[in-house]
Computed example of a mutant assay.
Amino acid sequence: MKFSNYLVGVLNFATIVLSLPVIGGGIWLASKHDTDCVRFLQWPIIIIGTVLLVVSAAGFVGACVGISCLLWIYLFVMFLLISLLLCFTVFVFVVTHAGAGHGLAGKGFKEYTLGDYSTWLQNKVDNAENWNRIKSCLSDAQVCKALNAEYPTTDAFSNSQLSSLESGCCKPPSACGYTFENATLWVNPTNVTADPDCLLWSNDNLCFDCDSCRAGLLQNIKQDWHKVAILNVVILIFLIAVYSIGCCAFRNARREGAFSFRGKAYA
């Protein structure tokens, strides 16, 4: 087997390895409470990673046994996958770039406003059917369960570093003026007109019907997806480099007659 065969085989093996972090990123997202409840983002990347793995394996076999048709398929599909992964990564950056927490005087945590986030994400959580499913999932995950034990006093709660989900879903907005009884029990609001969520707070259902809960969920999604998108950028750089070298190696292999088609030399 000539040098070009070995080179293309090694490059295909490299893309097999690179597909694993793509799949792993999707699995990591699916394992988290916030993104486990919102399945419209992690599955595309798991699918892309899986197809990349299968195609790379086909290219590796094609390089090892010198079957040019497999390598043609590999190069074509790899181009499509790189383009798809690039578009998907850009899309993730675009829909998650907006939105951030608002600091509060004397508080260790931030609060979140739904209108700060992209329209596409807002539409996903504004849909009643979607939100009922997400709300049920978050409730089952008991995202507020540990707060009472962790922050038993007003001062402890005020200085807490709540996650965006805890801040948005487990307490009423600070502007409402509720009195702290414990981390999930608030009474006697002094300004229920300060925020529409003030009237949605319930000591039984907490703030799972509030826009602040939707915003807290989107903030968590934004943070998680930025991590995965950065990983995707690194993987894309390597994939593009591997694909470019693979194209050159395959072209050289054709000139050398290194690959065969149906048992005949291919040049």
Results as ranks from 00 to 15, higher is better:
183 A>D: 03
196 P>W: 14
111 E>V: 13
118 S>M: 04
51 V>S: 07
35 T>H: 11
137 C>Q: 03
179 T>D: 10
29 L>H: 14
22 V>D: 01
117 Y>K: 06
43 W>S: 09
162 L>D: 00
19 S>Q: 07
5 N>P: 02
182 N>Q: 11
171 K>G: 00
257 G>M: 07
140 D>N: 09
79 F>S: 06
201 W>C: 04
247 C>M: 10
140 D>T: 06
78 M>S: 14
94 V>Q: 11
57 A>R: 05
34 D>Q: 08
178 Y>D: 04
58 A>V: 13
104 L>W: 02
10 V>S: 09
257 G>N: 12
227 K>H: 12
22 V>Q: 02
59 G>C: 04
126 D>R: 11
207 C>W: 00
39 R>E: 11
15 T>M: 15
127 N>I: 06
84 L>G: 04
136 S>A: 14
113 T>L: 12
135 K>A: 14
28 W>C: 13
187 V>T: 13
233 V>L: 15
254 R>A: 05
151 Y>G: 00
11 L>A: 01
169 C>W: 07
228 V>W: 01
139 S>F: 04
54 V>L: 15
69 C>I: 13
185 L>F: 14
91 F>Y: 15
95 V>A: 02
236 L>C: 01
207 C>P: 06
209 D>C: 08
85 L>D: 01
134 I>V: 15
30 A>D: 06
25 G>T: 04
42 Q>D: 13
123 N>A: 15
16 I>S: 06
9 G>A: 02
214 R>S: 08
162 L>R: 02
152 P>G: 07
46 I>F: 08
203 N>I: 03
1 M>G: 14
139 S>P: 06
251 R>F: 07
104 L>N: 03
40 F>W: 08
195 D>C: 06
226 H>G: 00
101 G>T: 04
220 N>C: 10
61 V>A: 08
242 V>Q: 03
152 P>A: 08
93 F>W: 00
71 L>H: 01
109 F>M: 00
244 S>P: 00
49 G>Y: 01
49 G>R: 01
193 T>F: 03
217 L>M: 08
7 L>N: 05
254 R>K: 14
224 D>F: 10
52 L>W: 05
142 Q>G: 08
260 S>I: 02
4 S>T: 13
257 G>P: 05
51 V>A: 06
259 F>Y: 10
205 N>P: 00
81 L>M: 13
29 L>D: 14
85 L>G: 00
169 C>I: 09
220 N>D: 12
34 D>Y: 09
49 G>W: 01
151 Y>E: 00
81 L>Q: 06
93 F>N: 00
192 V>G: 10
251 R>H: 11
226 H>E: 03
11 L>C: 07
146 A>N: 12
257 G>I: 06
204 D>V: 12
193 T>A: 05
220 N>V: 10
181 E>I: 12
139 S>A: 12
239 L>H: 08
219 Q>E: 13
94 V>M: 13
104 L>P: 00
258 A>E: 00
66 G>V: 03
255 R>G: 09
